[in-house]
């Protein structure tokens, strides 16, 4: 197979979608993203992962999810998949949340928020609730517009601010550097290595 590998993406939230999309775009001419399956939530992904596993025989699938409460990625994969994982299914798990991959590029993210880089922890993968950590950092931003976009208002029921996804998507598209971030996030580093090494097997001639 010559040329970029066509690949479908399935994710549980907009942030993971932005991250994976950026990753695929930074790898030189390796992948051609096709359809993005994102109907929101971990439950959606988990319910449909076996369908994606089946469809991967036609077009490779890259799935991005958060580790959350599982102790390690292999446990999650074992728990989710009923059938053996197809070679073309790339199930990548962010430890513990996709927000950790954002924080891992601490120089750029600190510059984006207007805070000191030293305020961001080094060991991003051991943060239990990376989303909360990210929001608390944003709350200390010197730029009011970022605080209002990313942080939920006091006494609100929502966990994130009204423009959380779009703000972070813009950061990821424009400033986030996966090569800097992989130094602090081993799960991201493994994902990049896997994407570089992956060659699909084609069951049907020409795929889809």
């Amino acid at each position: 197979m010559n040329g970029p590998i066509p690949i479908n993406i399935a994710v549980e939230d907009a942030l993971t979608e932005s991250l994976l999309f950026k990753l695929l775009n930074t790898l030189p001419n390796l992948y051609a993203p096709r359809t993005i399956y994102n109907r929101g939530g971990n439950g959606y992904l988990r319910r449909n992962v076996n369908g994606f596993n089946l469809a991967a025989r036609g077009t490779p699938f890259l799935i991005g999810t958060d580790l959350d409460r599982y102790e390690c990625p292999p446990r999650l994969i074992e728990d989710w998949l009923l059938q053996p994982k197809h070679h073309n299914l790339l199930l990548r798990v962010a430890v513990r949340q996709a927000e950790a991959w954002v924080l891992a590029d601490k120089e750029n993210f600190a510059a984006f928020l207007g805070i000191r880089p030293s305020m961001i922890r080094e060991d991003v993968e051991s943060i239990q609730d990376a989303k909360r950590e990210l929001i608390q950092l944003a709350a200390r931003s010197r730029r009011r517009v970022l605080r209002e976009d990313i942080c939920p208002p006091l006494h609100s029921t929502r966990r994130v601010g009204p423009n959380y996804n779009a703000r972070l998507a813009a950061f990821i598209q424009q400033l986030w550097d996966p090569n800097a971030a992989r130094q602090r996030a081993a799960s991201l580093s493994r994902t990049i290595d896997r994407l570089l090494a992956f060659r699909p097997t084609w069951l049907r001639a020409g795929g889809t």
Binding site: N50, A55, A169
Partner: peptide, 27 residues
Amino acid sequence: DLLEGGLTIAEAALPKTVPPSVGQLDL
């Protein structure tokens, strides 16, 4: 394949109708 894997037609087919550059709306 996705239908066979238990997805509804909405889940299997509608993502194909999303314009590829929709992420630009975030900017």
